[in-house]
Amino acid sequence: MSTVAPEKAKNSGLVPKVDLKKADFQSDQEVRWCPGCGDYAILSAVQQTFAELGLPRENHLIVSGIGCSSRFPYYMNTFGFHTIHGRAPAVATGAKLANPNLTVWVVTGDGDALSIGGNHLLHALRRNVDLKILLFNNRIYGLTKGQYSPTSEYGKVTKSTPYGSLDQPVNPISLALAAEATFVARTADIYIPHMKDMLTRAALHKGSVFIEILQNCVIFNDGAFKEVTDRAQRDDQQVMLEHGKPLVFGKGQNRGLRLKGMDLEVVPLGKDQTPEANNVLVYDETLESQTLAYMLSRLDHPVPMGIFRAVNRPTLNERTYAQIEAERKRKGPGDLSKLLRKGEVWTVN
């Protein structure tokens, strides 16, 4: 697992300024998720990461929608806005455009972001607004007590689907890539160091960030991602995407991924075989084209974790202010009296 190089942090302009501790980011509100909920680990990782980033507390704005995950802002001692179902990306877009100096985070869930708020997610991502969207995916509606969600697997038996869900689930990473998100990553609630890495990279990224955090719901969907994240089998079940490194996985890194025609295939690697010799792909997160990232996002086995895509493009907030500046240069600063007298005017004495 990678760690963020200090020079990268420097280059981003977000030079750590303030000496802060995790406790500085804990609010005075009692945390009220179910005992054992994956959200606790995420909250802790975010608080630790924020402390390590050293950005002043008042610079962070956390915007959420509705659902279990969306209670998140109440537990963070930063600015926070618990908005309405699905609309957090839209509210956050307005806040970021109005105040581009803020570091704006969106905390959302699979129902909030992909069902009722699907449209806002798509457009926030494609506009490349500088928002860091954290999607806690537990593949279930928790706050309404256990209906299937847009990421629930086909056939899932829930309160609202006693005979099994009939829906094709949506793949959040595929969707984010198709929506032109400039930073797309996946991590899991139980991978604290990895999650912190992803959060740090998110904070440093300029543009739309989408991180899918695989999250367990102990009450309504326990073991949601057990087959992927379970310690006993995770090495065989997932592949870690690391920039500049070959796509190898398995116990002793005994398998690799390579292209076969229009798809990916798993290739076994013998003890003395280098990945290079087997044409195993070396991952490049900075590719402008999403094609490879998209192919990886479709994989069920192994499940890719880490950064699918990290590219630099101008953000909507930058472009918005650049256009204002350009117009001010072209026309001069706004003169209200002149504006009101534009066109044909006449004077009555």
Partner: peptide, 18 residues
């Protein structure tokens, strides 16, 4: 992207001081 987002973004902008 839609009327809802227009209103929601306006609320966000107002919260942020516009």
């Amino acid at each position: 992207e839609d009327e809802i987002a227009a209103m929601a973004a306006t609320v966000g902008a107002s919260y942020a001081g516009a």
